[in-house]
């Protein structure tokens, strides 16, 4: 049974953004973008057709605002598409086999969106575009130092709803960590579009943040926290991971 209500996503050709937001974005891109940003978007027209269409439309709209934003749309249901999904190690929805919409940045494939960066999450997506284009990210120095030291490959899943104003902070932090250190992969997961994956992680409040190692949850908590507290959670998870590998090794 599907637990989560799904938006009746309206597939509109263009015009997802308000005119004032289009203008603000155009100015911001003009001022802030440096290098080309390439985004790969996996689409699943079988299981998430409406949101895959919306994904295509919003990216097309962003591309129309600045030529430095480039996109490649991949049919995740095609043989090649699925192969690419696996190459990027993005087949994490083993529960519902939903293959899109999934967004990754080619230069930083550790920054991932499972589902639309809609509602309050949209800002995180724009921040990512700017960070990747400029090849810089702002984090408090003490936090950045600790993130740089992470030497174990972990995923951070941030489960969100587009209505949650707190959630985007966690997406942004997870993505900044992933930007700084490629041992960390930051995955925003929109619970509407990935209901089975969300169910598997018992999502009953958002943001829910899960530190994952080898596909298994090591540490999880609900709610938004500042970057420094987020890093403390990561450090605790790493102690657990290392402790358990020592035991078994």
């Amino acid at each position: 049974m599907q637990r989560y209500i799904r938006f009746p996503y309206i597939a509109v050709a263009m015009g997802l953004l308000k005119e004032e937001d289009r203008q603000a974005l155009k100015e911001s891109f003009e001022k802030n973008l440096k290098d080309i940003v390439e985004i790969t978007i996996f689409l699943d027209n079988e299981k998430n057709r409406d949101s895959s269409n919306t994904a295509k439309n919003i990216i097309n709209e962003l591309m129309s605002l600045d030529s430095r934003i480039k996109a490649k749309f991949v049919d995740a249901r095609s043989e090649n598409g699925y192969k690419l999904l696996k190459e990027y190690n993005l087949d994490i929805d083993t529960f519902g086999d939903r293959r899109g919409p999934i967004f990754i940045f080619n230069k930083k494939p550790e920054i991932v969106y499972y589902g639309l960066p809609a509602g309050w999450e949209f800002v995180a997506f724009i921040e990512d575009i700017i960070a990747i284009s400029r090849n810089e990210v702002d984090l408090p120095p003490k936090v950045a130092e600790k993130i740089a030291k992470v030497d174990t490959p972990i995923d951070i899943y941030v489960f969100v709803t587009p209505e949650c104003p707190y959630c985007t902070h966690m997406t942004q932090y997870a993505h900044k960590f992933a930007f700084l250190n490629n041992k960390i992969r930051g995955v925003m997961i929109n619970v509407y579009e990935f209901p089975e994956l969300s169910e598997a992680f018992h999502i009953q409040a958002v943001p829910k943040n899960v530190i994952v190692y080898n596909g298994k949850s090591i540490l999880e908590w609900e709610g938004a926290v500042p970057e420094a507290t987020f890093v403390e959670h990561i450090e605790r998870a790493l102690v657990d991971i290392k402790g358990s590998s020592n035991k078994h090794g």
Partner: peptide, 17 residues
């Protein structure tokens, strides 16, 4: 327990049905 919430705005959609 899981399922206690303090933010209906954030979590209400998770309780559909």
């Amino acid at each position: 327990l899981n399922g206690i919430s303090y933010c209906a705005e954030c979590d209400a959609p998770l309780y559909s049905g």
